Every structure is written in C-alpha cells, then in structure tokens.
Simulated scan of single mutants.
Amino acid sequence: MHTNACSRAIELATWRTNLANDTVATPEFARFVAADQAEHDWIDVAIQCPTRFEEGTLRSAQMQFLAQSSAQRHGRNYTALTVTRLDDLKKNVLPGQTLAKLALAEDRAGFATEVLAGKRAVAQQINGANGSNRLNALSDDHKQAASELMQLAGNTQDLRRKVYSVHELEAHPDSIVDPATGLRANTVAVLEMNCARDEVAAVQKTITQHTAATQSGESDAQTEQQAQDRNDELCKLALLFATHAVTAFSLGYPGTDWALFKNA
C-alpha cells in the first residue's frame, strides 16, 4: 500500500522510538542506536507533516537527550544535533510576522539568561557560587538568533523590547514554577523550555493556517527550489527549538510526554 512521506516518517520515527524506550527486551546499545536515529526521524516528521511540526520537534529533543545521556554514561561517541544560531540560513519562506514572534522569544530568553548570569557573577564574587560563563554564552546565542531571525523577516515590525520584567527572576533565580505545567524546576530550564514552546507553537500555527488555506482552494504552486528552501528553513528552526528543549532537559526539566504535550 502506498504511503506518503509524512506517514513513512511517522512510522519509522515511532518504531525507533519504541525500540529506544524498550528497557526490557532491547539491549542498551541497541537502544542508544535507535535513539540516535530517531532524533533524525522526528525532525523529518516535523518537516514532512503539516500538523506535527510541534510534536516532531519535541520528540526529536526527547530522543536527542536519551542518546546523549546514554553516550555520556557509557563513553560512546555521539554527535548532537545542536543548533544555536542561524548563520547559514539565507532564504526565508515563512511569513515575516512568524519570524518576528520567534525573534521575540529568543530575545526574551536572552535577556533573562543575561540577568541570571549577572546575579551569579555577583554571587561568585561574594561566596564562590557557580559562575556565569555558561549563562552568558547562552544569552549571546539567544540574542544572535533573534537578530538573525529579524534579518530574515525583512521589513516586518520588530517585536523585541530588549528589556523585560525581572520581578520573577529576582524572586526565583534558582527554581521557579513553570506556568505551562505548574511544576517547579530549575529557572534556566524553565526559560529554555518556554522559549522552545513559544517557538514551536508559532511555527505550528503558521503551518496549520497555510495548510487550511491551500485545502480551501488557494493556490500553493511551489517550484522545486521553493519547496527545498521551505524544508531547509523548517529543519533549521526545528533543530534550534529542539536544542533549547535539550538544554532544559540537561538542567533537570522533565522530558516526559506529560510535561511536553497537552494531551499526554
């Protein structure tokens, strides 16, 4: 029976994810290999399936973290699908308004991590607490991504405010209640996860609206090059968002379905 690219991508990603999560019948090394492959498969789902960009991106992050954790425990070679900047993304197919929303999410996360880096630098001077180098690097990456997204957006209105409220950060610099789930987690982990959530939701909404418009009769004629540009853009964005989620997982944010998916 013929299946389209989306169906094939989902079938393969689901099969390998089941293998990766099978702690009873599947040997540990085979689980690692399956997770390493599934992280790529779910990015393919994000690209090929109009209604599953959000799911594909976040499930890729789950598999990335599973493979990464296994590699660290057993000393295996593992190349993460880490994307923190968009330097090599030269063509934009998504609406400028969507990219502006993504830039806002990146800029907001960049400001918040910069504030926390400042607080930890002061704490380090006073009592030798954890330093701020990683947070400063994280902040720089967010701000650079925001700048690149706005460049791609062209003449679209820039939604970035550069400075945001610091009340919650001042009150909860180490752990905070995630407004999306109600769970308490590491503050930076919550910031990263909510940045990823805002971004995948914005792209998913755009894709869904576009799909609905074409199904209602609007023209969607694309050249082969335009289709490739779209796939390249969705791939790079999915990898960027997944990187934020993996960072959150590495800081203790739960990577379980109930924490990531509304209907889990």
Results as ranks from 00 to 15, higher is better:
I207H: 05
D88A: 15
T256Y: 01
F53P: 03
T84Y: 07
V190N: 08
A103G: 02
Q68P: 00
C195W: 01
E170L: 14
A35K: 08
A80R: 04
N18C: 05
T156R: 11
V246Q: 10
R108K: 15
A38P: 04
H2R: 13
A30W: 04
E11H: 02
V166G: 09
C195N: 04
A103Q: 02
G110W: 06
R197F: 06
A145E: 03
A25Q: 13
L260Q: 01
V177R: 07
K236R: 15
I176Q: 10
V190I: 15
V122C: 07
Q124G: 13
M1K: 12
T51F: 06
L99I: 11
E55G: 09
Q225K: 15
F241D: 05
A100I: 09
V246F: 12
W42C: 01
N263S: 12
N186M: 06
W258N: 03
M150N: 11
Q64Y: 06
V177P: 02
C195T: 05
L19Q: 15
E218Q: 14
V122A: 15
A80W: 00
N133E: 14
L94W: 04
E170F: 05
A13R: 00
K205E: 13
A103N: 02
F29T: 13
I176C: 08
D41F: 13
A238F: 07
T208K: 15
R52H: 05
N263I: 09
T214Q: 12
G154A: 09
V166N: 13
S219P: 07
